[in-house]
């Protein structure tokens, strides 16, 4: 876990530093002793300090901690599927994209059963239609291509 710790520590310091710099743009009332910028600055300084502690701790920690056994490949793959899904919903509508997402993820995780490959995507879309659109009256996006 050494390398990820260094990277996450650095990212936290950079992000906190950026937010700290932004606090100088906050509009202020002169009469206020503790203004809108006070707490965000405290949080940023704490994050920078904690980030440094994490770096030092990691540096001083001799043992190379256990590597995680599950691969990230499939998790990251799933993220790309969902990102794509969220991008296409406004265009092709919710139901078609849901069908494609579920089918895609099932194929991605190597499901071979043909009944499942049809039933789960159709079932999910149908359930959302009945539950969210009819019962809860959520206006599900139908997509610009079809409206």
């Amino acid at each position: 876990m050494k390398k990820p710790n260094y990277i996450s520590g650095l990212i936290i310091i950079i992000i906190a530093g950026f937010f700290y710099s932004q606090t100088f743009d906050f509009p202020q009332l002169d009469s206020q002793l503790i203004g809108a910028d006070f707490m965000p600055r405290v949080y940023c300084i704490m994050l920078i300090l904690l980030g440094c502690i994490l770096l030092i701790q990691t540096y001083r920690d001799k043992e190379e901690a256990d590597e995680q056994e599950n691969t990230m490949k499939y998790s990251i793959g799933a993220m790309f599927f969902v990102i794509l899904y969220v991008i296409v919903i406004p265009y092709i509508g919710f139901y078609i994209s849901t069908f494609l997402l579920v089918l895609g993820l099932l194929l991605f995780s190597k499901v071979k059963n043909k009944i499942l490959l049809i039933a789960i995507p159709v079932g999910t879309s149908l359930f959302i239609y009945v539950f969210f659109q009819i019962l809860l009256k959520v206006s599900i996006p139908m997509g610009t291509l079809f409206s």
């Binding site: 969902v82 969220v86 997402l101 993820l105 999910t124 959302i128 599900i140």
Partner: peptide
């Protein structure tokens, strides 16, 4: 089977 359904639910 569950994971894709959960992800759709998160979005909806």
């Amino acid at each position: 089977v569950l994971t894709p359904i959960i992800l759709v639910f998160c979005v909806v």
